[in-house]
Design a protein around this nucleic acid. Structure first.
Lengths: 130, 130
DNA sequence: TAGACTCATCGGAAATTTTCGAAATACAAA
DNA sequence: TTTGTATTTCGAAAATTTCCGATGAGTCTA
C-alpha cells in the first residue's frame, strides 16, 4: 500500500498542517459532515473542503454522500495503521484538539440542519455571542 | 514536552521531506558525521546540514562534536516515542531507505577521512563512475 | 420551477519552502 | 601562521503552499 518514499512524504505532509491535523483528530472518533466540521473548527467551509481533499488524497479519510451532505470519516480499519496511530496518540493530548472535541459534542447534540443551514442565523448568533 | 498543536505540526513538517526523512531513517540505527550522511545520500553537504538543522529544531536528533567532525544521531531514549516509532516503522520498509542503509554499511566500513576528505578525489570518482 | 443549502473548485495574492553554489566559520595539522 | 578539511550560513531565484471570497455544480424542499 505504501511502497515508496514520495508517498510516505505526501502522507506526512498531509497531516503537517493545523487545520488538517485538527480535522483528522476530529474524525478519528466520529463521522461528521463537512459543514459540521467547519462549524466545530470555526474556519471557512472552503478551507475544510480543501483540508479534506488532501486527507483523502493521502488515504486517511473517506467520504459518504447522503443527500446534500457529505459525511467524512477516517477510513475504517485504518486506525490500526502505525503511522496514523502515532500521530493521533500525540494529537489527542493537545488542548486545542480537546477543545475541538468538546465543541464537537455540542454540535452533535443538535440536528445537522440547525448547525449548518441558516447562514443568516449563524452570523447573527456569532455577532451577539461576542 | 509536546504540548501544543503548533509544535506537533512543526515536528511533522520536519519529517515531511525526502532528504530529512532519509536522514532520520539513517540515524535511527547509527551515529554518523555530516559528511558521511552527505556521501551516503549523494546530496550536497549544505543540504544535509540544513536537513539536520530542521530535525534538530524539531527535537529528533542531537549532535556531538569531535574535533572537526559533527556526529549526529537520534536523541537517545527517543526511539520509544510513539510518533517517531510510527514514522520509522513505515520508513524502514521503503526501498529507497533500504538502499541508503546498504550504502551506509559500505561507508561505515571505511575510515571517515577516506570517505569525507579529499574533495578532489571524491569528485573524480564521481566523474569516472558515470 | 424557484429558492435555499451543501460542497468543491477556482483565482490569485501573500507567505513559505526548497535548492545549492558560494562565502563564512571552526578546528586541526603542518 | 598557513593550509586543508568539516560544517554552517547566506543569497536569491524558483517552486510550492496557504488562504479565503466568489463562483459553480449538484441536491433538497416548497
Amino acid at each position: 500500500m505504501l511502497d515508496d518514499l514520495k508517498t510516505l512524504v505526501e502522507r506526512l505532509k498531509a497531516v503537517s498542517h493545523p487545520i488538517r491535523l485538527r480535522v483528522l483528530a476530529l474524525l478519528h472518533s466520529s463521522e461528521l459532515s463537512v459543514c459540521q466540521v467547519a462549524e466545530i473548527l470555526q474556519v471557512p467551509q472552503s478551507s475544510v473542503s480543501e483540508a479534506l481533499r488532501e486527507l483523502r488524497r493521502a488515504g486517511f479519510v473517506s467520504e459518504r454522500k447522503e443527500g446534500r451532505w457529505v459525511f467524512v470519516s477516517v477510513i475504517p480499519g485504518f486506525e490500526g495503521d502505525p503511522l496514523l496511530k502515532g500521530i493521533l496518540m500525540e494529537a489527542l493530548r493537545l488542548p486545542e484538539v480537546e477543545a475541538d472535541r468538546t465543541r464537537a459534542g455540542m454540535v452533535k447534540g443538535q440536528a445537522i440542519a440547525v448547525v449548518c443551514g441558516k447562514v443568516q442565523a449563524a452570523e447573527t448568533k456569532e455577532a451577539t455571542r461576542v
